[in-house]
Nucleic acid binder design. Structure first.
Lengths: 97, 97
DNA sequence: TGGCTATTTGGCAGAATAGCCAAATAGATG
DNA sequence: CATCTATTTGGCTATTCTGCCAAATAGCCA
């Protein structure tokens, strides 16, 4: 294993929350601003912001400020694959679950 | 998405701990008994047992008792793919990280 | 500048998690 | 049966996570 175990675990941990997972799924289709992601998951806006910070910290997302909005995007296409694999009724590669 | 978001998040959450991730990696090579997994991650044996329970609860592992030992195995090859993807310096499918 | 929108930060209370110890359970074996 | 090995369960404390509120910050526009 080349990536430190702890770093990999941190990525999984960051994905281990329904709101964060939903946001990452949305971001798999392209970047979104915080307000869009917030509309997606509901709750307090500050909670959304903190969830995004967790994902950035784990290296899953990166954020960029443009005008007065902040746009987040996936940093690793790998994550998209991972989510697709779990989200499908069967694994796309193996045909099994 | 066909698998409930919450269930997928639970899988990620269960993988989001270094000891659990290490055990799952070992199990990707074949089933192990608790004592082997415990030797791998150290700490208290009861802690290992509880980590395994978390993974079973998430649907990642299944355990089977044979004689007086309990053997755990991966339930989903998908998880193996996921881990391989993250563990590699580059994603096996896309060549990117 | 003043106000407006978008987002983050600090702080707090409650819930969940981690890890250790002691005790209980299950099966093998003398 | 008594005992030994392997594992789980109950319980406890310390730590971390969640989600809300209030306040601060940053950039736009009149």
């Amino acid at each position: 294993m080349r990536v430190p175990l702890a770093a990999a675990a941190q990525v999984f941990k960051s994905l281990g929350h329904p709101a964060r997972l939903r946001m990452v799924q949305a971001l798999a289709k392209g970047e979104c601003c915080v307000c869009e992601l917030h509309a997606l998951v509901g709750g307090d806006l500050s909670t959304t912001s903190k969830h995004l910070a967790v994902l950035v910290q784990a290296g899953v997302l990166s954020g960029e400020k443009r005008a007065n909005k902040v746009f987040y995007r996936l940093r690793t296409p790998c994550v998209t694959d991972i989510i697709a694999c779990l989200a499908a009724p069967r694994c796309a590669r193996t045909g099994q679950r």
